[in-house]
Amino acid sequence: MRPRSSRRARAATLLALGAVVATGLHPSRAEERPDPAADLRAFQAHFRDRFPQLPIAEFANGPYAMDAGMRQQWEEIMQFPPYDFAVEEGKQAFETPFANGKRYADCFPEGGTGIRQTFPYFDTAAGEVVTLDLAINRCRERNGEKPLPYQTGLMASITAYMAETSRGKPFDIRIPDDKRALAAYEDGKRFFYSRRGQLNFSCASCHVQAAGQRLRGDVLAPALGILASFPIYRSEWGSMGTVDRRFTSCSAQTRSEPFAPQDPGYRNLEYFLSYMSNGVPIAGPGTRP
């Protein structure tokens, strides 16, 4: 149980954030044709103007890019990165053949090395967004293995290893000229900007309007580059967490029932956020307070 004073302080912060958000409203807009390229330019320009001294690559570092004090602690932690064990475990799993003799490498282009920045992608044959985590489980199932749980554990380890082989490669997300791909993108964008839950917050309330501000002990990561360090080792969790884990816990923070991991809604959200981050280099796996 949290002490009452801290709960009250938290409620006050949230209310203050709500007020900040409420003042930023425009008059209502009618429906528009999706234009991802124009969205991307405006999105990145917003963050460049907000944090003019920050090179785009720095956005991959989330809260550590925002706060000098935290950054110093981080540099100390990074002498013995707490995700090292996960990268090791992931590498071993990645290289171990399945019971049928096939490997993960057989399921991916480039043998699965250095490709993290191209996920998620829109699969035009299936008509859906495919994340790296989903592709890993489909690879397993195609080869007669059970799918892994999505939020932590071996899934986080395998994606940690695959991210590590892709470090420094800028996000390179494509939106094909396909009605269904545009609809998936638009759905993710709608989710990101929609107020949800009892607290009436959108993802943007915290990660756009309040980016860089403190919420309780946390510094809010800016939405630009927000997935570039995944998966992460988070001290608060005491373990690794995937994008699904983070989406689930951010949904719950607003008192909104989270979707199931890899729900199409979350996949579309990841598609939108990753596309907005095109040009930000992969820095995963990451560590967070």
Partner: peptide, 19 residues
């Protein structure tokens, strides 16, 4: 209230988009 919020957000979300 959650139903009202969802109905209202069907269009209101566009006002929050970065442009």
């Amino acid at each position: 209230r959650s139903v009202e919020q969802a109905r209202e957000q069907e269009t209101a979300w566009r006002d929050a988009v970065i442009r």
